[in-house]
Write a protein that binds this DNA or RNA. Structure first.
Lengths: 157, 157
DNA sequence: GTGAACCTTCCCATCATAGTAAGGTCAACA
DNA sequence: TGTTGACCTTACTATGATGGGAAGGTTCAC
């Protein structure tokens, strides 16, 4: 099986298969006389595992560990569970930070009239770092206080 | 004002200030005879703007646009609002995808006994791509159906 | 035998940020 | 005056996962 066929069958691009081989995430593929890589069922199985793990957001380094546990008949499911739980926590953290950003920015955008004039609480907030100044304070729905002190969060990198 | 002082005052690292200059996000700084960069209040103001925008997760390219609007006295707050709303949507999308991953993995982890044996629904799911197989189905709390068809989501890049 | 579709390796780009190395400058203090 | 330590300069490298492309070899069907 060619690398292209393996890519279509596994859902991992040929580019990435070569990359995974180069970093040792998959073993060096068999080669035909022509130099073409040759893949079998076991290789597809491994690539599928990697792809599913990527779909769950695992980093390649964590996947390396998971692959080790996968191929270890004496593994402890407690180890696997610990890795999964740690990853869930990281995913939740990142999601929470993104949501905090979205909430802050949504508040600012809600306070902006968007009527074509230059005055804009979004720009004003970026300028000063202050929260939604509500340049035309609406009767209700003005956020009273800030919950998250917005430090140096950097999330979606 | 040195670049180090400007960095401390603005919350943008000296490294990043130089980088922002190199990509034209901030104008070339004044230079002293020694070649040292020299910063004033206006520079700090601009760096602060950039930092606040980064804190809200804006990309540098979007910040470039925002800076243009900021310095444009004839800007329309509708333009700013549109950029903000688009960004809110992106943040929400990314957060949602992360949460979907977290939910899927949490379900798998919940189904794992973690009792030290090798049997593990997490590993099994990665292997087959199927959902939590619940190798020891608990009486209740087994997810009945999947809502998100888990395609090629790639989020936290 | 020819052309299209594939494969190979190698290099470069992304995005925002940090690290390091080699060398120049500044300020304080002996 | 000399020294020291903190700072600055440029330039190169790395990160993580992925994509794009060039230049050249292989395979297969017509």
């Amino acid at each position: 099986m060619n690398i292209g066929q393996a890519a279509r069958a596994s859902g991992v691009s040929a580019k990435m298969i070569r990359h995974y081989e180069s970093i040792g995430l998959v073993p060096p593929a068999d080669r035909r006389d022509s130099g073409y890589r040759d893949y079998g069922a076991a290789d597809l199985h491994r690539l599928g595992f990697i792809r599913h793990a990527r779909d769950l957001g695992f980093s390649l380094e964590r996947i390396r560990v998971l692959l080790g546990l996968w191929s270890d008949p004496g593994r402890s499911n407690a180890d696997v569970k610990a890795i999964a739980r740690a990853h869930v926590r990281e995913l939740e953290d990142r999601a929470r930070q993104l949501n905090e950003m979205a909430d802050a920015l949504r508040t600012l955008a809600d306070a902006c009239d968007g009527d074509g004039r230059p005055d804009c609480p979004i720009i004003a907030s970026l300028e000063t770092g202050a929260d939604a100044p509500a340049c035309h304070p609406k009767p209700a729905a003005t956020a009273p206080a800030r919950s998250a002190p917005r430090g140096k969060v950097r999330v979606g990198r």
